[in-house]
Amino acid sequence: MSGLTDLLSMALLGIGTLFLLIGATGLLRLPDVFTRLHGASVTDTLGAGAILLGLALAAGWGLLMGKILALLLIMALLGPSTAHALARAATHGFRKPWLHETDKAEK
């Protein structure tokens, strides 16, 4: 049973690491603020979530697991608020989102 938990924890950490790297690539590669926000949210949701869940499994039952899950909950609650505040500030700062070429042609 303990071996299974370890395996699951390692798998979760691996998945989290993968999505972390993908999210960071998105942050670097995508064309404008809004699309980069999508890339960052990949890191913030699945990357952070999988890593913290993996750590919680590695911690085993107890206060530590509770703390890690509390950290996960706090990140899940605060993350979208920050992202929305950023997107709203960017819209109000007159940053027009980069739209697809066909859309631009229509307008």
Binding site: L27, M75, L86
Partner: peptide, 13 residues
């Protein structure tokens, strides 16, 4: 906003 986003992402990391 790119810089704020980067700073925020760095905070998460």
């Amino acid at each position: 906003y790119d810089r704020i986003l980067a700073s925020n992402a760095l905070g998460t990391k």
